[in-house]
Computed example of a mutant assay.
Amino acid sequence: MSEMNTIITIGRQFGSGGHEIGKRLAAHYGIGFYDKEMLQRAAKESGICKELFESHDEKPTNSFLYSLVMDTYSYGFASSAYSDMPLNQKIFLAQFDTIKKIALEGPCVLVGRCADYALEEFPNRVSVFIHAELDARIQRIARTEDLTDAAAKDKILKADKKRASYYNYYTSKRWGDASSYDLCLSSSKLGIDKTVEAIIRYVDAFNDQKTVEAI
């Protein structure tokens, strides 16, 4: 097997175990893992306080502001408009810039925050989406967060709606749509262990193929 040189991005339904799956993948390959860590690093590098990144985390903005963000992003941080930009736009740009910097440093696992879209031009990126049946997610969240089933379901539906809106605003793709990702897996049907194993097999095959193409 060739040396690991792949960046894995993970989109996930709330309660599907995407965070745990990502951590296990990073541990298996001995590479960096970034979930909330992306926000911490973006805050440090941008000088914007971490609490503001957390309050804006995976929350959509309106389409007008989005168009302004993307126009500015295409010109980079050097744009004179950056200093006059609304805070949510600065947070968006700082986060995307950090995702690209992390990816340039080497193989890693990145969870959420449109990382697959930010790294769309990276040939060594594998994008994964983890989903699960609602009942399984309710059981998981009710257990891990000590909630009633009703409260867990409400939290799941709200979180998924927020993530979908954020992703659909900031990318040219649809959140959770199979065509938006390289690999989609159900953690409720496979279980966490087998889901991790399936991703490892896919990533290893992808990495080996890239090595062959480079020879």
Rank of each mutant, 00 (worst) to 15 (best):
R140V: 02
K155W: 05
R143N: 08
L93T: 01
S188E: 10
I138Q: 08
V203T: 07
M85W: 05
V126D: 03
T72S: 14
Y167R: 06
S187Y: 07
I91V: 07
K153A: 13
H131F: 02
I48S: 02
Q13G: 06
N168I: 05
E120S: 10
I21M: 10
C184R: 03
Q209F: 11
A151Q: 06
E45V: 09
S188R: 11
A27M: 02
A81L: 15
N124T: 14
K153W: 05
D135V: 06
G17T: 09
D154K: 14
E45P: 14
F64K: 12
F33D: 07
T9I: 04
D208N: 06
S186L: 04
K155C: 13
D84M: 09
F122Y: 12
D97T: 11
K162I: 04
S179P: 01
K155G: 08
S63C: 02
C108N: 00
T6G: 02
I31S: 01
I130D: 04
Q89K: 06
W175E: 00
I200K: 01
H56R: 13
I130S: 06
G47P: 04
Q139R: 13
Y75E: 15
R201L: 10
K155T: 13
Y117E: 07
C108I: 00
G76R: 10
Y75Q: 14
L134R: 15
L147R: 12
E213Q: 04
I10N: 08
N88G: 00
A178S: 08
I91E: 01
K36P: 00
E3P: 01
A81T: 08
E133N: 08
E133P: 09
I7M: 08
C114F: 07
E37F: 04
A178Q: 15
L87C: 03
A150Q: 15
S165R: 01
G30T: 08
G15L: 15
Y82F: 10
I7C: 10
S83M: 11
Y82L: 14
T171A: 03
K36L: 06
F64C: 02
E105D: 15
L157F: 05
T195D: 08
I192N: 03
A42V: 02
S188V: 07
P86Q: 09
G106F: 14
R24C: 00
Q13A: 10
S172W: 01
L68W: 08
S46I: 05
S187R: 08
M1T: 13
D57F: 04
V196G: 00
F92W: 07
K173A: 06
K153D: 14
A151H: 15
D204H: 11
N124L: 05
D208M: 04
L147S: 12
N5D: 07
S127A: 14
N124Y: 15
D71R: 09
N168E: 12
D97L: 15
L25C: 12
G22D: 11
R125A: 06
G106L: 15
G18M: 05
S172D: 14
H131L: 00
N62D: 07
R174I: 13
Y73R: 11
E133R: 10
K194W: 00
A151K: 13
S79M: 02
A136T: 15
K23E: 12
S165Y: 00
F77I: 08
R140E: 09
K44D: 14
L119S: 04
L87W: 01
F206Y: 12
S172L: 07
D208C: 06
F77P: 14
R113V: 03
T144K: 07
K50Y: 15
R125E: 03
F129H: 07
G15A: 11
L39K: 12
N5A: 09
